[in-house]
Every structure is written in structure tokens, then in C-alpha cells.
Design a protein around this nucleic acid. Structure first.
Length: 445
RNA sequence: GGCCCCAUCGUCUAACGGUUAGGACACGGCUCUUUCAAGGCCGGAGCGCGGGUUCGAUUCCCGCUGGGGCCA
């Protein structure tokens, strides 16, 4: 939203340098989730796993300029140091021993195949991060030690590859989760060491689960797909997510992509974390369905009409009948199918409560009347039924409820006469006839 | 453990020193009604605590508490 609003370039970069956690299919999952969400990018995707030369060159340059150095401690040695610090009740920091090694000596040992990591020589000064959302944040020098840029197996670490790429791609704004704020002084120091301009930073509050635990990045892409599979519309999900932390300020909540792109501003983004409420997401989904053109809603629901679709003109009418009753295209698809296939069973509670001894006879009277009712439309169907009820000395509801059960198999749904009209005379009468048969068999009358 | 961030109804949020603290989800009631929804109306529900600053603090500062994160 920020890139769109500012007329910037949104670049997609896949950070897949962690060999254990990065697998091809996970990258594909991210890509397809972005695609489904309709989040466009202007450039990329770039894969860090294909940019190792760049990181290697940057590491060599920092080494040559004395801004980074090799450190030869073994994991065991470091572990011992850590334990010692712990025993003494001190906070552990890397000793910085590698800084003392003469560059020529360092070079020789590296060539001889001594295992080593490459660390950044952190400046001994407070690092200030100017955050667009949080303001000025200071990190005292003694809180940061010389962190590792390149592991002993030659793999660049996240902080290093990310900054090298940000510099290379001339990233102007880094907008990311709050969890990275504490890493930012490292990044600032790295940008400086690289001689690159420091981008603007904006750290967003994190999104928490209902259990108040963080919604993990690793589960992120999978979750997007789960929402999709549950019938959440991408525009509803994007709208909902945008509103976690940002608000246009005038009480509007249901927004189109265009509105958000036009109005988004970091000034109006809050710093506090927010809990993801699936209930409200569902409401948001229904709101977007309510506003969607019928044709579009039909197209999105059709895949879920797994037991048949009515003809298109009927389907479009059914959409209007059910759009306030369905919260997802999945529910809508199911509703559409009821117009194409006769009920195979009837709601048991409805059978118990609405089917009385006289019901079959009443329905037969109704069927007889409906044989001659014309036109087959709400204006004629409703008075006809009410008349039959009156002539039989029963309330209209004694006829309405069993009829709904006969036509749809359920006790709830769209207004009965609209349903009957949409079904058409032949289908409606067939369903009534079948229902009467069923109840006559059941009651043995 | 060290460092950092955050703090308004259960949840998402508005408010940028003076408001009966507004809206939304959820919840309850009423209404509409052939059912269920949707819609409309009404209601319950919040400034974590303690100090300052100020004529006046939800709002600014400090501390505490609580939650979260990073590093290890």
C-alpha cells in the first residue's frame, strides 16, 4: 500500500539463504499466496540463493577495508565463554578476539583452510534508529557485539544478505514487523560499513493470535492458504489485515483496494501489536460479498456448487436471494446447488416440529391449487397459498414451513415464495409430491 | 539474564491537554418478518497502577506492573 501510495517500486525478494528452513516449495507457497492476495510487485522475484556472488564480494570488500574480520573460535570455545559469563552473572558478548589477528595472518589461516566466520567490527558508539512509527530509538554500543555476517560454511546470514541486497536494490523504505526493531542497529552499522545510504525504517506492530502468541512468519503463507480454503476472499483478507494497525480515521472499515492505495499513510499506523480476530474477518468477508457484482460473486461461488448449478439467469437471481445469507463463496455455492438438485433428505427437527397429521392433505390441496396458479411468480404464489390456508382454516405458517421443507430440505433460508418462483413450477411441484410421499410413508397414512 | 518495543471496551480501533471517551466485531434486547439472515434502533462493556508537569490529564514526563520482541 505504501509503495502504491507513494508511486514507488515494490520489489519482491525471497530470502532463502537458510538452507535448513528454505525449500523450493516454501518459496512457491509465498509466491502463490502473494498472487492470490492480489499483491502486485513491480520487480522480482529475486532469490537470495542465486545472489551468493554479491554477498561474497561484499564480505571480501569489508574484510579488505578492515570493517569486518575473520574469527577462528570453534563453537565449543564460544560455548565455554558463554557458560563462563553466565556463571559470573555477566551478559555474554563475543570477546572480539578476532579483531586482534593481523590481517596477513588471518589471510594465511583462511587459505590454509582454518574454519572461521566473518564478523562485523561494530563501532563503539550508540546507534540511533530513526523509525517512522516509533520515533528515535537508541541502542547503546555495549548492547551489541560483533555479529556474524558469514558462517563457517560460507553461507551469508540473514542480516548480511538483507542489507547487501537493500543497498544493491537501492531500497528507500524498510517496512517490517516490530520483531526486527532490535536488529536494526546491526543493519544501520552494516549500511555504514558498506558505504550505502541508510533507508527509512518503519516497524509495524506484530500480529498476534487469539492466544496472544505471535502469528509466526513460518506459518504465514500456510495460513493465507487456509483462509482461502475456508472461503475468505482475498480483498477481505487484505482489507482486514490493513486495518490491523492502520485506520483511515473516519470510521470507515470496508475499503476497496483503490481506496486503501489512495489513502494509506504511515502517519496513521499505530505501534501496538494487534490480535487477529477470525470472527471479524468473517464479517468483513460478508461485507465484501454484499458489495460484489452478482456476476462476479457467481463466478467465485460456482466452483463450490459441487452438486449442480442452475441455469445462469436462475443462478444470478439465487445470488441475490442468498448474498445476505452466505458469508463465503463456499456457502453460496452450496445454496446454488439446492436449485439444481432435489433434496435427498429433510431436516429431522423440521420433520418433527412442522409435519403434523394434517400436513400431507394440506400440501395436496396446495399442489392442486399450484397446478393452475399463473403466473408462476411471487405475486401469484403467495396469495394462492394464503388462500388455501384460509379455506382450510389453518394459519399460513402451517403451510409455509412444510413447503419450505419440501422444496429445500431445510427449515431456514431465503423467502419461500422467491425460492418457489425460482425453482419453476415443474420442479417445485415435483419436490412437493416427493415430500408428500415421504411423509405418507413415514406416518403410514 | 541484558537490551528494545508496546499499553483506550473481550477483540480491532478513533481521539493529536478541556469530548456525556466515538465507531466496528462479538454479546443482549427491540424492530422488520413465513423461517434464517441482512438491515435499522437500543443496551451492557474501556482510558492498567503510582507519581509528577499543568488551571486542567486517556493524551506530556518518570517509575511500576503487564504483554511482546531481539540477542544469547
Amino acid at each position: 500500500l505504501f509503495a502504491r501510495r507513494e508511486g514507488g517500486t515494490h520489489i519482491l525478494r525471497i530470502e532463502d539463504t537458510d538452507v535448513e528452513r528454505s525449500r523450493e516449495e516454501l518459496s512457491q507457497q509465498v509466491l502463490s499466496a502473494m498472487d492470490w492476495l492480489g499483491v502486485p510487485y513491480d520487480e522480482g522475484p529475486y532469490f537470495q540463493s542465486k545472489r551468493y556472488d554479491l554477498y561474497r564480494a561484499a564480505a571480501q570488500r569489508l574484510l579488505a577495508e578492515g570493517k569486518a574480520y575473520r574469527a577462528f573460535e570453534t563453537p565449543e570455545e564460544l560455548d565455554a565463554e558463554r557458560k563462563k559469563a553466565e556463571a559470573q552473572g555477566r551478559a555474554y558478548r563475543y570477546s572480539g578476539a578476532g579483531r586482534q589477528i593481523d590481517p596477513g595472518e588471518s589471510e594465511r589461516r583462511a587459505r590454509a583452510g582454518d574454519r572461521h566466520v566473518i564478523r562485523l567490527a561494530m563501532p563503539a558508539e550508540t546507534i540511533v534508529v530513526d523509525d517512522l512509527i516509533r520515533g528515535r530509538v537508541e541502542f547503546p554500543a555495549d548492547a551489541l557485539d560483533d555479529f556474524v555476517l558469514v558462517r563457517s560454511d560460507g553461507h551469508p546470514l540473514y542480516h548480511f544478505s538483507a542489507v547487501v541486497d537493500d543497498a544493491d536494490m537501492k531500497i528507500s523504505h524498510v517496512i517490517r514487523g516490530d520483531d526486527h526493531l532490535a536488529n536494526t542497529p546491526k543493519h544501520v552499522a552494516l549500511f555504514r560499513a558498506l558505504g550505502a545510504p541508510i533507508p527509512k525504517f518503519a516497524h509495524l506492530g506484530m500480529i498476534l493470535g487469539t492466544d496472544r502468541k505471535k502469528l509466526s512468519k513460518r506459518h504465514g503463507a500456510a495460513a493465507v492458504e487456509e483462509w482461502r480454503d475456508q472461503g475468505i476472499l482475498p480483498e477481505a483478507l487484505v482489507n482486514f489485515l490493513a486495518l490491523l494497525g492502520w485506520a483511515p480515521g473516519d470510521n470507515r472499515e470496508v475499503l476497496t483496494r483503490e481506496e486503501m492505495e489512495r489513502e494509506f499513510s504511515l502517519d496513521r499506523v499505530g505501534a501496538s501489536p494487534s490480535v487477529f480476530d477470525p470472527e471479524k474477518l468473517l464479517w468483513m468477508n460478508a461485507q465484501h460479498m454484499a458489495r460484489m457484482p452478482a456476476e462476479e460473486l457467481l463466478a467465485r461461488s460456482e466452483p463450490y456448487a459441487t452438486s449442480g448449478m442452475p441455469p445462469k439467469d436462475a443462478a444470478l437471481k439465487a445470488i441475490e436471494l442468498h448474498r445476505t445469507r452466505a458469508r463465503t463463496p463456499i456457502e453460496m455455492g452450496r445454496a446454488l446447488s439446492t436449485y439444481a438438485r432435489d433434496p435427498e433428505s429433510y431436516d429431522p427437527d423440521g420433520m418433527k416440529k412442522q409435519v403434523k397429521p394434517e400436513t400431507a392433505a394440506l400440501l395436496e390441496k396446495l399442489m392442486a391449487r399450484y397446478e393452475t396458479t399463473s403466473p408462476w411468480a411471487v405475486e401469484a404464489l403467495e396469495p394462492a397459498l394464503r388462500q388455501v390456508a384460509e379455506e382450510s382454516g389453518v394459519s399460513a405458517s402451517k403451510l409455509i414451513h412444510p413447503t419450505r421443507l419440501a422444496l429445500t430440505g431445510t427449515t431456514v433460508g431465503a423467502p419461500l415464495f422467491d425460492v418457489a418462483a425460482l425453482l419453476g413450477k415443474e420442479t417445485a411441484l415435483r419436490r412437493l409430491r416427493k415430500f408428500v410421499e415421504v411423509i405418507r410413508t413415514q406416518t403410514g397414512s
